[in-house]
Amino acid sequence: MSIEITEALISHIATLARLGLSESEIAEIQGHFEKVLHYVEALDKLDTESVDPSIFTNDAINMLEQDSPHAPLGQELALKNGPEVDEDSFLVPRIIAEAGNEAGGGKASP
């Protein structure tokens, strides 16, 4: 499973994670990544041909709840930890350049 850890890959992952990295930090992280991957590569030595991919850490299954409402936190408590809020909403830096509201449905996925 050897993946080549390039500077471009680090930059890409940093962008996805919204991290601004300097060139020296990229070089440093490159080393960390290689080390971690190398450590995990030990698994390649195992024969996993007959082993199903594990998708959950134990055998638990069907942990479900009934569809009956609990009391929500309420607006005041919900907003309490917001770094920036107004009377009823969280405030974030403007994201869309165009003016106007996002009509009807927002985005379910980008």
Binding site: S89, L91, I96, G106
Partner: peptide
């Protein structure tokens, strides 16, 4: 899947509201 919240962009303001 789960729906996302709603961003409300206010005309002329540097910030957006999140509900």
């Amino acid at each position: 899947e789960e729906d996302a919240g709603k961003n409300i962009h206010i005309e002329g303001k540097p910030q957006s509201r999140v509900d």
